[in-house]
């Protein structure tokens, strides 16, 4: 299973980046390849390319605000979670992903 994710929080100062790292770290532990785009106060970083999205099996949107350029994921399997979920129960998110994939 290959995952791409986008994180975004209201002020874009702290939680966007914490959630991004939390998702990357957890995925690493679980042996799941992942790339996380952050949409914070510094704008979009680690931007997901068309190719990244094309190759991914599932998209995780960890956001408390509207995600920019959401239309990129229109044809993809998506799971929407809150920033809080990403920070507190990142493992649950990946097991949900696995369930959806089945």
């Amino acid at each position: 299973m290959k995952v791409v994710a986008v994180t975004a929080c209201p002020t874009g100062i702290a939680h966007t980046y914490m959630a991004a790292d939390k998702l990357s770290d957890t995925a690493k532990k679980l042996g799941i390849p992942i790339k996380v785009e952050t949409q914070g106060a510094m704008g979009i970083e680690n931007r997901l390319t068309e190719q990244d999205i094309h190759r991914a099996d599932i998209v995780v949107m960890a956001a408390d605000i509207r995600v920019e350029y959401g239309e990129r994921f229109e044809s993809k399997l998506c799971i929407n979670v809150s920033i809080q979920d990403a920070l507190k129960k990142p493992q649950n998110i990946f097991s949900q992903c696995q369930k959806l994939m089945k």
Binding site: I13, A14, H15, Y17, M18, D21, D25, A41, M42, L87
Partner: peptide
Amino acid sequence: MLTLNKEQGDQHMRIFSSLARKLI
């Protein structure tokens, strides 16, 4: 507590985000 001046640019923001990442 992180208090960011709206006008002061990305350099501070980069430090803030890196601090946030480390806190996990």
